[in-house]
Design a protein around this nucleic acid. Structure first.
Lengths: 263, 263
DNA sequence: GTTTGTGAAATGATTCACAGCG
DNA sequence: CGCTGTGAATCATTTCACAAAC
């Protein structure tokens, strides 16, 4: 998932699969809810349902962490909350900075889900001098000029980039130079970072595009909600003819694909 | 990635792998940038670099769409933009509604990346009556009471949920009942939906947690930035002893894991 | 010569199914 | 009994490496 470099099996790694790591927060959320309702134990079946996965996967995931369940009974909720939190590093306090306090940055600053896990918004940073000092979510915005000092003073190793795309790489470079080694990128750009720095990206429009793909499939080939497509004009094909894979055998049912674009 | 149900190979499917679909928007973004700079062709190598993947993967991905390149030359940028857009369904106009106009909802409404692809924010909906009529991103907010009518009038099939967690399932149910078949969920809850409805989720705190996991690994076992962990008290272990997988052979270097929790 | 397109191999993730433990 | 933990089987994805096309 890291954007730029190779990314060894999992940063040195004792070997928890990435796919499992990505689900641990899900389990943790479900467990926290159970914990609040004072439920003492859960079966893999129940917990899996609450987390939206199937129970075999959940059990296999937990097996990478160790044997924390009791056969015939299930898992001790409190204990598992602790184990997963520890595995994810949430028993520590992680100061984060958010750079770019526009709509999205402000939303992030206000987002309750951070504080409730081990994250603390240590600073908000924006390039606009007129924002400096203005409080957002109770935290005064600071100017980009002080970025390096802020990182250092607060011992920040995780940075969130919520700037426009154009500024993202530059901000990223400064964060990295100042010592940040994990970046959550909301700007729609590919960031390049040196080895050892992790980048995860959240791209709102990408998620919608994936939905649109599936939506289109569902709809067969009818118009979705509004006027049919006249958006991009077909564009000239290259010299070569356009083929399709899979000769005569086993082809999809719907006869879409107009074979060759009209020049 | 859909949250609730089984999800056949890929909704009826002519067979583009999910992993490939998830990368198409990335390629599209890179191609759009090239197009704006009037670059006529790209090699798989160049495009892969711009999209942050490796070239073998990119070529394999494109091979699922058809043969759109020219050997010895590369890909025609405009043509490929069109083909990918079409494959993703972006040559159509997709009206979307955003429900929950808090900080995040407002950020989404203002997000430029939607309109530039085939998405159009058809309506903003919020449960707070005092927001009704107030324009956000130039679009007047409407009240939840009218949700069904709005969906129907606009032929909306994609909904974005940006409400608090507690309201999400209820909003989801109403969206689905009104005809929405794709949902992008920003609320930190597992939504359950009937078969045939796709859900994708974006959870800001989950991404941070995954970063924290890797960050912890990098740091060895030193304190990260601030005070060390005294957050969750260890919690009682269940009856059983705690094992670890992998007997004597091949074990990770760092001797963490205090074997058994102090009761 | 260059660069695509793709079988085949390698790796990774999920699911099955059941032995073993409480 | 019920439920976990996990090898083995299956399925998906990535990578390799090279023949075919320009």
């Amino acid at each position: 998932m890291a954007t730029g470099r190779t990314h060894r099996p999992a940063t040195r790694s004792r070997g928890i699969p990435e796919a499992t790591v990505a689900r641990l927060p899900l389990y943790l959320r479900a467990l926290t809810a159970l914990s609040e309702r004072s439920v003492p134990t859960v079966s893999s079946e129940e917990l899996a349902a609450a987390a939206g996965v199937n129970s075999a996967k959940l059990r296999k995931d937990f097996s990478y962490l160790g044997s924390y369940g009791t056969r015939g009974v299930g898992y001790d909720v409190e204990y598992l909350v602790y184990q997963i939190s520890r595995e994810l590093g949430l028993t520590q306090d992680w100061p984060v900075v958010i750079v770019g306090i526009g709509n999205l940055g402000a939303a992030l600053a206000n987002y309750g889900g951070f504080a409730s896990r081990g994250f603390r918004v240590a600073a908000l940073i924006d390039a606009d001098p007129s924002m400096a000092g203005r409080p957002v979510a109770g935290i005064p915005v600071q100017h980009t000029d002080d970025l390096e000092a802020i990182i250092e003073e607060n011992g920040v190793s995780i940075g969130v980039i919520a700037t426009p795309a154009g500024a993202a790489q530059q901000v990223c470079d400064r964060l990295v130079a100042a010592g940040v080694t994990s970046i959550l990128n909301f700007a729609p750009t590919v960031l390049s970072v040196p080895d050892g720095v992790d980048v995860r990206k959240v791209d709102l429009s990408i998620e919608l595009q994936i939905l649109a793909f599936h939506e289109q499939r569902k709809a067969g080939e009818e118009a979705p909600g509004e006027a049919g497509g006249d958006i991009t004009p077909p564009a000239a094909p290259p010299a070569a003819a356009v083929r399709r894979r899979g000769e005569g055998t086993e082809q999809g049912p719907d006869g879409d694909m107009p074979a060759v674009m009209p020049a």
